[in-house]
Amino acid sequence: MSLEALLFIPTAFSKRSRQEVLNQCYVTGIKSLAVISVVAAFTGMILALQTGLELRRFGLQQNIGTAVTVVMLREMGPFMTALIIAASVGSAIAAQVGTMVVSEEVSALEIMSINPVRFIVMPRLFALALMMPLLAVYTNILGILGGAVVGATQLQVSFQAYFDNARLYAENKDLYVGLVKAFVFGVVIATTACHQGFSASEGAVGVGQATRRTVIISFLVILVLGYMLTRVFYR
């Protein structure tokens, strides 16, 4: 189904689809910013504090710059973003698509010879695949800043030292591998949510189940795929 949706990606820019694609981008990207901001900042702060306290025992707390940056870029940025998006946007998509199936809206589309995959899946897939990496960048930035604040206030690591240290070991590879992950996670979430939505059985119970399954399956796939991608890029 996702493959079929990919075939329709070129139509994302056609006039009739553009508006829906933009709306989906807005829903996934902009509406999630608030919660992502909080989660991202605190992820960075926790990372800085935990590693900082540990490193301070060796007098190496200035290394939190590297610690937070590398971990945010490689893992936490994409991972946290994916979890939030799966829990909020993914479940919402599953509920919406499930409701559409149950209330015969999908049937109505079929009668009108409107391919439901193009009409429903493609905009969501496109939006998630595009917005996830962008959101991951945003998460990374906030997380790293959060770490810097904790470093400066709790661990006596100045901003200058923090960022110097971060620049020392973090590479572009870390950043872009993280973004590739975020992209993959976006595809995973959209595919899972739409698939579960389309296979929702009759009634509100079916929709609820589709929503629940979406969150669980997305989480598991994100974790496992995250590990495997790490293995592929860093062996």
């Binding site: 009739r16 709306n23 919406q96 409701t99 559409m100 209330s103 015969e104 809206e105 049937s107 109505a108 589309l109 009668i111 009108m112 010879s113 409107i114």
Partner: peptide, 27 residues
Amino acid sequence: FGVLFQGGALLQWLTAGENVALPLREH
């Protein structure tokens, strides 16, 4: 065919006008 479904089956995120316009927009 034109089909009127039992529950209406209007797309929830479109306005009534957009729903009615949908077949024309698409085809």
